[in-house]
Nucleic acid binder design. Structure first.
Lengths: 70, 70
DNA sequence: ACCAAATGTATAGTTTACTTTACATTTTTA
DNA sequence: TAAAAATGTAAAGTAAACTATACATTTGGT
């Protein structure tokens, strides 16, 4: 799952640690998400999107996700 | 986490089984989501929203989710 | 009322998101 | 260029999403 987390974070000039603190996870979680080690949970995805004043779909790239029959 | 899955599913007149099949999970997963046994993963949330031609935030209710400092 | 379809529920097991700790490497800035 | 801040990485553990199977209850149509 590709994400714009790193891009958005740098645009806002905040560290992984600061983002981690405000969304309530550890720094390692943010690192892992940025490096695509795993996919964020729904709630975490929401919190991160909210932090950047965006919608989930604007932060996470679902273009590789298929839904059978559209 | 409250969801509109059941409401949307009934509006579209499809069974849990049919929804489960098209989004690629078991029927029990849909039942559990509708009865708030647990929260959908990000990818599943996306697939369900897509199925109903909606955005994630329109299917799942994040009003109880807080992000420190907005 | 009857039968079938749909839904709820339970338990045990697997996978994955996330934590904790710790250390190594890169980037920034003074 | 040296110190500090930021980032990457790794291993072991916990928690939660999801599966599989099975059975019980509810709902809907005839």
């Amino acid at each position: 799952m590709k994400t714009r987390i790193q891009e958005l974070r740098k645009k806002h000039k905040i560290s992984q640690e600061e983002l981690a603190l405000t969304v309530g996870v550890t720094r390692q979680t943010i690192t892992s998400l940025e490096n695509e080690k795993y996919v964020a949970s729904l709630v975490l995805a929401y919190k991160i999107a909210k932090y950047f004043h965006l919608r989930i779909e604007d932060v996470f790239d679902f273009s590789d996700v298929e839904v059978e029959g559209l």
